[in-house]
Amino acid sequence: MEIPDLLLPELLAPLISETIFAGKLHHALSVGSTNAVALEAGAAGHPEGSVFLAEEQTSGRGRGGHTWYSAPSQGIYCSVLLRPQLPPDHVLLLSLAAGLAVRSAVADVTGLHADLKWPNDLLFNAAKFCGILTELQWDGARVRHAVVGIGLNVNYTSFPDTLGKEATSLRLESAKTQSRLQVAAALLKSLDREYWALVADSGAQESILRRFQEHSSWTSGCAVRVEETDSFTGVTEGLNAQGFLLVRTPQGLRTVVSGTVRRRAGTQE
């Protein structure tokens, strides 16, 4: 029988002692959604850097009312509470920065280089292994707190039929079991690095945009279908200064602010 690889604060704490998250780890065996827990904690005044980890989520949240499949101890289900004092358009870059942080952590631990799909899904080939949902509460024009929720498939060997070929895991890609503890520690360290750069460094914006485009096969020259307010097709043409995706359509250049981007059928899958 395998020894359970639990994300216990006692084990994780020594690995992240230099980060904003030190001394602020919270762990649960099962919760509805780590984002919901973190948002409540934010409203209740928990400090910036509080981390909420769960072995299992019974109603993990995704975008647009989707759920995140969260089988017990097979993935990392983690939400961090931040209070970024940033201008609104820099706050949006948290979304891209979080994706870069996950990519870097995965590369550190597994040697695998993931593809970033705008705005922050992480893929191997066309299959997704990590999703990030950020929820913010505003006080007028100022962010009261932000919760970055990360669901990362670590040791899954199979998925529900509904996900099928659209999902993968670090274990499936690397053909070996990965230590969730090591991945979680690397993740918190890289999140710490990206976050401080974003809040402290005026050049972080350019760096985030540049690195994202370097590590994404989606942002330039990719034939896509976009489901936003309406549905349209075009070819991607990079990110603008705010991090929004530019898509060249027959009617002109469109700026994608939210919504889902898919490769068009018949193009590279």
Binding site: V91, L94, L96, P119, I132, T134, E135, L136, A146, S258
Partner: peptide, 13 residues
């Protein structure tokens, strides 16, 4: 208000 999978909860002021 959503931008780039950031869900911004807007409160009444």
């Amino acid at each position: 208000v959503e931008a780039m999978k950031l869900m911004n909860e807007i409160e009444s002021d």
